[in-house]
Simulated assay, not measured.
Amino acid sequence: MSDAQIGLMTATPIIILFAAALRRMGVLSTTATVSAVSLSVAIAMVLFTTH
């Protein structure tokens, strides 16, 4: 496993947790939270499989 893949495995859950925390604080709407989480997972999957 490369350093880039380890970084993706570390950064993606942090982004998801941050989006959830912002949703709880009322900063993000549900649509924005779902969008942020799904896009970060999709980007991580694409980058993980192409490296």
Rank of each mutant, 00 (worst) to 15 (best):
residue 1 M to N: 15
residue 2 S to G: 14
residue 2 S to L: 10
residue 2 S to K: 11
residue 3 D to A: 12
residue 3 D to H: 14
residue 4 A to K: 14
residue 4 A to T: 11
residue 5 Q to H: 10
residue 5 Q to N: 13
residue 5 Q to S: 09
residue 6 I to S: 11
residue 6 I to C: 09
residue 7 G to C: 12
residue 8 L to F: 02
residue 9 M to A: 08
residue 9 M to R: 13
residue 9 M to L: 11
residue 9 M to P: 02
residue 9 M to C: 10
residue 10 T to Q: 13
residue 10 T to H: 05
residue 11 A to K: 07
residue 11 A to T: 09
residue 12 T to Y: 01
residue 12 T to M: 08
residue 12 T to K: 03
residue 13 P to F: 02
residue 13 P to W: 04
residue 13 P to H: 07
residue 13 P to G: 05
residue 13 P to D: 04
residue 14 I to M: 12
residue 14 I to E: 12
residue 15 I to C: 03
residue 15 I to S: 02
residue 15 I to M: 09
residue 16 I to K: 02
residue 16 I to M: 03
residue 16 I to Q: 01
residue 16 I to T: 01
residue 17 L to P: 01
residue 17 L to H: 10
residue 17 L to S: 10
residue 18 F to H: 09
residue 18 F to T: 11
residue 18 F to G: 03
residue 19 A to W: 00
residue 19 A to H: 02
residue 20 A to F: 02
residue 20 A to Q: 07
residue 20 A to D: 04
residue 21 A to V: 12
residue 21 A to M: 15
residue 22 L to M: 14
residue 22 L to F: 10
residue 23 R to S: 02
residue 23 R to F: 07
residue 23 R to I: 02
residue 23 R to M: 08
residue 24 R to L: 14
residue 24 R to M: 15
residue 25 M to I: 12
residue 25 M to L: 14
residue 25 M to Q: 13
residue 26 G to V: 06
residue 26 G to R: 06
residue 26 G to P: 04
residue 26 G to C: 07
residue 28 L to V: 13
residue 29 S to P: 06
residue 29 S to I: 03
residue 30 T to E: 15
residue 31 T to D: 13
residue 32 A to G: 10
residue 32 A to Y: 03
residue 33 T to N: 10
residue 33 T to P: 02
residue 34 V to N: 01
residue 34 V to L: 06
residue 34 V to D: 02
residue 34 V to A: 09
residue 34 V to K: 01
residue 34 V to G: 00
residue 35 S to P: 03
residue 36 A to Q: 10
residue 36 A to F: 04
residue 36 A to V: 06
residue 37 V to E: 04
residue 37 V to Q: 08
residue 38 S to E: 07
residue 38 S to T: 07
residue 39 L to P: 01
residue 39 L to M: 14
residue 40 S to C: 14
residue 40 S to M: 08
residue 40 S to I: 00
residue 40 S to K: 02
residue 40 S to N: 04
residue 40 S to H: 05
residue 41 V to Q: 01
residue 41 V to Y: 00
residue 41 V to R: 00
residue 41 V to W: 00
residue 41 V to A: 03
residue 42 A to M: 11
residue 42 A to C: 13
residue 42 A to W: 06
residue 43 I to P: 00
residue 44 A to V: 02
residue 44 A to K: 00
residue 45 M to R: 08
residue 45 M to C: 13
residue 45 M to Q: 09
residue 46 V to Y: 15
residue 47 L to S: 06
residue 48 F to D: 09
residue 48 F to W: 13
residue 48 F to S: 09
residue 49 T to I: 11
residue 49 T to D: 11
residue 49 T to E: 12
residue 49 T to K: 09
residue 50 T to D: 11
residue 50 T to L: 15
residue 50 T to W: 13
residue 51 H to W: 12
